[in-house]
Nucleic acid binder design. Structure first.
Lengths: 328, 328
DNA sequence: TTTGGCACTACTAATTTATGAGTGCTAGAT
DNA sequence: ATCTAGCACTCATAAATTAGTAGTGCCAAA
């Protein structure tokens, strides 16, 4: 259990460290608290005993430990209203009636990344949540055509196929079969449904059914990749805790890794979730703050990734605001 | 004019520096040339007088100057056949009959980036070279629909529109008008053609023509962005000349800048073009090697960006090979 | 023209020195 | 019982010193 004064000191230290990334001295704290530096020092060392603070070397000031940040986030941080400037910049985006939701989200996260210097991530709904809405085929020339796949969430994918000596009639037969039989199926189940419901039929009525079937099968087996959008990776180049090239390299590799996606997706719920340092699987020096959003027409996960020394209050309030706006 | 021996020395120095990124000493050269280091030294200093070599400090070995690289590229480098391993990895991609050309290109450049540790760029054909092939509209729900734009080069773009209280009949009327009147027009001229050829007609026959017209107008005015694909930016993190964070930041900013596109596009021709250091507008420490390709169905520019200390012979032969394969 | 020899330069890495911002501890004040 | 002031101590950082050495340029002799 912490005394009121200890809480106050911990809060001051975390917030000061967040701002300047430099160990915080007792002197600095005692100026803001009416007591001597010696008193602060003894409080600090008892906070250190409780594992909430750390030293970088024997005679350095204190920095928050992972537990320190966690305590701050759970108990100390105040979720006041977002600051006016941040608010304004985000409002502009949502006020724009012409933009569709998904563009608003992308744009917002770009803006947030620029304002905060953290990286942001949007994960669209995954393939089992996207239902096939319609497919379209556009012939390009004799040998190739484009197949366009649209899902009910408005996700569009396309693939060019090489198909030689196939009558356009056969293709349009197949397309209308698919559009009649398979629409409404989750994208990741389309391939198998194609096999059991479409293949037998085109087998009878379509000339080169083998070739056509294979082509469409390929299209759908590749569509299933999730829709990811990472913005502002490079922002880490300006974060002092990543001033070392090898660290940056390691982090960037993690970002390119597709495990990141699964990782961010997993155990996100409708609240604002915060994963500090080793609580996330990306890097023990970063914090991930994320939440899921859900609207009648779409759903997904948005996340902000920065150093552990993140502006928690600001980011949480931004994310809350954003989620609210998306869901309205 | 350089003597044969001077050429030999310059070539050795460039190639050695390309490999190890360390100033080359006279001793090293004299081992490969049957003469004393003193002789080499005097040759080196005459090469320095000709501005082909530089020193990093008074008593250091030599490194190639920009002019040195230029001389090497123009006169010294030997364009032998590509090395077997590189060749093999690229062949695999083009042997795969199922892949469409544009995917082959993208894939090749990823592979090249991984093999060489340089960044690669593919620029698709620009909007005035892409002709409108067809548009499709997929209604998502009452208020929104997706417009899909396909060009003759197989480029697909889509945009979601919010359109309230519009009859689907009016929309399909407009779509078929566009598909009849405007197909074949360069993408960047579609907007204006829309205004002069479609607007007057839908003005008469379509109910909410104003709203519909505006919606489509917006779609086309945004489609015109060129199709860019930069791979392996992060490779610069491992290049010793970019071991400094500020340099990396500067370079990455350039990469995000859309001027890069125009820059790479400009003055590329069907040969392999090499822009060393200040000859390009990206960064005086990089070299850009690029070429244009053109097939009956598509065209574009491919580029490889690395430090000035680039493996010129290897990259040029790869690019040549790639261009050949694309155009076949 | 080439070579060996020699003086010289400046980068590198290791060591030293000084400074200062911090701490912990203790004895006395409140 | 708590707070405070004072003092000794620690350690990071930066600057200065010292080798050591991998290079050079130049010169005089082959």
């Amino acid at each position: 259990m912490l005394t009121e004064r200890q809480k106050k000191i911990l809060k001051l230290i975390v917030e000061h460290y967040i701002k300047l990334a430099k160990p915080v001295s007792s002197n600095l704290i005692c100026k803001k608290l009416k007591c001597s530096s010696a008193t602060v020092r003894s409080e600090m060392s008892s906070l250190e005993e409780k594992k909430l603070l750390e030293k970088t070397h024997t005679s350095s000031g204190r920095i928050p430990s992972e537990e320190g940040y966690r305590y701050y986030v759970n108990n100390l941080m105040e979720l006041k209203k977002m600051n006016a400037e941040d608010m304004l910049k985000l409002q502009v985006i949502f006020k724009n009636q012409e933009m569709v939701l998904s563009d608003c989200i992308t744009k917002s996260l770009q803006v947030i990344s620029d304002m905060t210097s953290y990286a942001t991530v949007v994960l669209g709904s995954s393939s089992h949540e996207n239902l096939l809405k319609q497919i379209e085929v556009v012939p390009l020339n004799q040998e190739s055509m484009i197949v366009i796949v649209v899902t009910d969430k408005g996700h569009v994918e396309h693939k060019t196929l090489e198909l030689k000596d196939i009558s356009s009639k056969d293709i349009s037969k197949t397309v209308s079969l698919i559009n009649n039989l398979i629409v409404g199926t989750p994208i990741d189940e389309v391939s198998s449904k194609l096999e059991y419901e479409v293949k037998p039929i085109i087998g009878k009525y379509v000339e080169q059914h083998e070739q056509i079937y294979n082509a469409f099968y390929n299209v759908f087996s590749e569509v299933s990749e999730p829709n990811v959008n990472i913005v502002g990776k490079d922002k880490f180049l300006s974060q002092p805790e990543f001033s070392n090239l090898d660290k940056i390299k390691g982090l960037f590799n993690k970002f390119d890794d597709k495990d990141l996606v699964n990782d961010i997706k997993s155990d996100a719920d409708n609240n604002i979730n915060i994963y500090i340092g080793s609580e996330n699987n990306i890097d023990s020096d970063v914090t991930v703050i994320k939440t899921k959003f859900k609207t009648p027409t779409d759903e997904g996960t948005i996340a902000i990734i920065g150093p552990k020394r993140m502006e928690y209050e600001r980011v949480v309030s931004m994310l809350e605001y954003l989620k609210e706006n998306i869901e309205r």
